[in-house]
Design a protein around this nucleic acid. Structure first.
Lengths: 236, 236
DNA sequence: TAGATTGTTAATCGATTAACAATC
DNA sequence: TAGATTGTTAATCGATTAACAATC
């Protein structure tokens, strides 16, 4: 039978293991992970099998220190004196990012944006499978976009269940975003990718990722306007 | 005639004025400006004429302190004991972001993404005027998307000059992104809004804003995957 | 072994928050 | 005037960078 010492040891080990796993990774790091993913793909495409933090830092325009720090949040993926094995690192980053989880997505709103998204290679590259679309427009319902069938939004609950959808992609007009999102809380999805511009308020642990492409346009405009204000006087 | 004291005074004043203008606003603040823009529009739509940093902070889920700090980078737009005049603040934010500069944009690549963008109300809301599209596909050239004419990419230089384009929006396949961008350095554009996923390398002061929608999808996947790993054990 | 490069700690830098005096 | 709320300074917090010992 275990003595007190053993029991405490077990507890200690458990706690530290959880700590290591859960030890919250900073938002700043998380936001950079997709970028590592992209550059590693590029390295693989180029046939590189090995990369040092110094090399990668040059490619990505960040410090080598940051790269090592970032990667070490998830474990020691490198080897002293050698660097990182590109394929191994890529595999690890994919694991962390849930590529290979086989997430299944459905697009709600088969308009311009929804259609454009579905036709892009983005999902395939990231291991996300778009398996259904929805629209209110009866003339679209029953049609296909590529191999993806368009259903009536009234069937959301049923189809989401049937197809075991993990991610709902909202591309409908913003007026319907909130009510749709509320319906989605009754499905088994894990997250919403929200393109509607509407701030969704849900009583649920569903992860919401909002996309505001317009914000990026405005940042660009800001920089151009600022350049005109300041730079041009001395430049021209 | 001015004495030495006066001259020095003038210089002092000038320098401090420039300092105040140029005093670099932190990237963190700049990235938040479009969000203020959106919420102020919302307030206007709701008919609110006045808002305090405390109210706005509740709406936006940020601290009141941050709002006041952010806005003060550009000047004192509020009034003690009152708060901020919504319309005035909106006007100011618009000025800062270059809304009303009347920027003119052209979309290069009239495929799914380019077409979807052009049809969205995004540009109009932000005072950006999309005035031309380009494609290599002869069957598209000469056609119109709404009122926007599609030109042959071979005419980029001429049309950019004629239409006085400020912003090039790249939505063509990534293989052609770099060469196209290089051609654009010979036009008078101020910025490139790059959707191609290709990291553009230019010898030029053209502002480049890269959009990687896929990064946002991956962040979502990461959060969903993490929730499954950690949360579910205790949740279910 | 010597050289290279990671993993990790400590130092620096920047961004956020708290607090409060100024002032409407 | 009293109450409210900004503008702004100082304190805290978090993220980045530098440095170097560990180690392949």
């Amino acid at each position: 039978m275990k003595n007190e010492k053993d029991i405490f040891d077990d507890i200690e080990i458990d706690v530290s293991a959880i700590d290591a796993e859960k030890h919250a990774v900073s938002p700043a790091v998380i936001k950079r992970l997709p970028r590592y993913f992209r550059y590693l793909r590029e390295l693989i495409r180029m046939g590189k099998t090995r990369v040092s933090s110094a090399e990668l830092s040059k490619m990505m325009n960040v410090t080598a220190s940051q790269i090592r720090q970032d990667l070490n949040c998830f474990g020691g993926f490198g080897q002293q004196g050698y660097g990182y094995n590109v394929n191994y690192l890529y595999t690890k980053i994919c694991e962390i990012l849930g590529v290979g989880c086989g997430f299944r997505a459905a697009v709600i709103g088969a308009g311009n944006l929804g259609s454009a998204l579905v036709k892009s290679p983005m999902f395939e590259k990231r291991g996300v499978d778009v398996v259904a679309m929805f629209d209110v427009d009866e003339s679209l319902v029953g049609k296909r976009l590529g191999h993806i069938r368009i259903f009536n939004v009234s069937d959301i609950e049923r189809i989401f269940e049937d197809y075991a959808i993990d991610i709902a992609i909202l591309t409908m007009p913003k007026e319907f975003a909130q009510e749709t999102a509320e319906r989605l809380t009754r499905t088994n999805i894990g997250g919403i990718w929200n393109f509607t511009g509407k701030e969704l308020k849900l009583e649920s642990d569903i992860v919401i990722e909002n996309v505001h492409i317009g914000d990026s346009l405005m940042t660009l405009c800001y920089e151009i306007a600022r350049k005109k204000d300041n730079g041009d006087s001395s430049a021209k």
